[in-house]
Design a protein around this nucleic acid. Sequence first.
DNA 1: TCCGCGAATGTATGCGCTTACACTCGTGCA
DNA 2: TGCACGAGTGTAAGCGCATACATTCGCGGA
Lengths: 362, 362
Amino acid sequence: MTKAPTVYDVAERAGVSIATVSRVLRTPDAVRPATRDRVLDAVTDLGYVPSGSARGLAERRTGVLGLYFPGFDAVEGIPPLDVLADGQAGPYTVVREDGPRDDGRASMLFQDEVLRGAELEAWRRGFVLMVGVGRGDPATATVRDMAGRVDGLVVLAGSVADPMLERLAERVPVVVLAGPRHGDRHDHVTVSNTEGMAALTRHVLARTGGRAPVYLAGPDDSPDGAQRWEGFCAALADAGCPLDDVVVRHGDFTRSSGRRVGERLIAEGLPAALMSSNDQMALGVLDALHAAGVDVPGDLVVTGFDGIDAGALSTPSLTTVRQPMRELGRAAIQVLARRLDAPGAAPMSVRLPVEVVLRGSA
Amino acid sequence: MTKAPTVYDVAERAGVSIATVSRVLRTPDAVRPATRDRVLDAVTDLGYVPSGSARGLAERRTGVLGLYFPGFDAVEGIPPLDVLADGQAGPYTVVREDGPRDDGRASMLFQDEVLRGAELEAWRRGFVLMVGVGRGDPATATVRDMAGRVDGLVVLAGSVADPMLERLAERVPVVVLAGPRHGDRHDHVTVSNTEGMAALTRHVLARTGGRAPVYLAGPDDSPDGAQRWEGFCAALADAGCPLDDVVVRHGDFTRSSGRRVGERLIAEGLPAALMSSNDQMALGVLDALHAAGVDVPGDLVVTGFDGIDAGALSTPSLTTVRQPMRELGRAAIQVLARRLDAPGAAPMSVRLPVEVVLRGSA
DNA sequence: TCCGCGAATGTATGCGCTTACACTCGTGCA
DNA sequence: TGCACGAGTGTAAGCGCATACATTCGCGGA
């Protein structure tokens, strides 16, 4: 770390010009083996590592792809931590914990999986991945910053305002993940929310003899939620089940909001089925039903949507629709890579299939 | 994307020199408000985004921190996916799923959490995060590549061979995460594995009247495993419980290996307690015991180590020691930031406290 | 009105690399 | 023996930005 060696240092040590050093690193076949070995020795001796900045500047491409998520953690909610200041804490503490925490980690798991897939695919293509999370006041600052450092950007729907996205797209290719196209020219990757919910709804109707389920909707501004609702309605219509009979409850995608709805269900009388627009709320409903001793799926069936792990571990386990999260990440990078190869191609939309997972609750 | 505008374009449009443009962006106070506004207008009009490469080259720092993980996914095991080729798949499939999958996601969850923490702390300090995973044949290529692009590197223990790490450390500061120091000069961040396991062991001994637990060890090459074993032994010694009485079983940190050990336990007669060196194996043990109708914690108590989510959802819920995963990531970045501020400071080791989580199984 | 001085801006250089182009040196051929 | 030619190597020109230094501008005081 004294002073990072450069091509000049390597060149001098190997007794060649910097052009030759560069060639050894980039097109080894273009240089005589004897020369090549001398250069490689010098590289090893000096511990030379090429500067990504210089390379990026000269090449006009960085070899980096960006992945940008909507903020999941409120800035205010961040517990302080300063490992440099306080070394006073003991090596351990003891806590007693009853019942699972309502930690709202679902969307984070989703993002984690997407990230995994994206990293994998980026690696396979010789790119490295840069990640950013939209949060804080100049939330756009981070993504703008990233845009200046990458060859392409994958943006989760909802993390960047449209006008900003438009601007970014002017500089680097942008792929929008999990968001429907609305008049933009970006590439899109989505999942079959509508079809998945329709299939699940048909399953539920078959189980309940066609009686209309109660629908548990999420926030109004969720595009995913809208699509799921659409699939629900379509399946009902197909089955000749009038929409007017459907009771709709609203939650905010959290487990506790589901719990409240569950309690209300019990108070007002159980329907034949409760279909939630996400898993977290469905689990909350199960919490309430379980506490009240209701038999699921005997007294009513319950379904979710997303396929989070916790759904497999609940009692009863949750019937749901699993999103191909990892594949979403991979697909996004694949689409981005295509875009880099063919900048002029028409914008494309990729829609990934979902998996209807039948488990205990329905 | 026609041709990204540069400082020159902005300067020309605003009728100033490039130096002024640069100043507006970096030290706004150093330029007259009227001029500043003209420049900012030009920036907006052109959709100018500064090039990270050029900036990095000129500034001799990139503003990027790297996080490097050991490979979790075998390269061979990657299912193919080519969204560009096959659009033929239907929008959904239906599967029936009984019981949780043995998916070995524990270490990935660990890494995800670390990543979250690191990203958060990097963001707070104005850095962006670059992530890499060690896999593939020239596994070192990725990390070397990263080293050339970042101002500092956080490396999870075991992901990079020591000699390579030494070389990287010559170019950028390196923080080793979750690995003990052995003769190196890097900064280190670890958790109190030893103390945590000792505390948990004391708890178990208190519950079982001092009868020696069976210990379920992991792979021999795990530094974490070694430290936990150490804590276990220390607590036993303190309690005057002879180590000779301890039966040690071996697993490979997977749930299925724990299941096998559980079955063997049942076949050979139940001990007073089973302490596993990680949660996954402990859950496997619970699987086997549950299947055989053994009462936990009535017939024997079971504990794990790590604090993965699945442990909170098992029946009975798993008593364990929770690692501060998020904080590990944050601490690593904090240490790295300090190192960047004070390159000459002595190497430091930070040890984070763990949380003994008492739940149903013990 | 002129001078001096600080603030504001411009000029020019270099960051470390890639690469077009120029050059050197064998080699095969006439 | 002379020449064309290609492989191997060197020279030099940027890539887009930050910044030290030079220059100009605006203002107050004499």
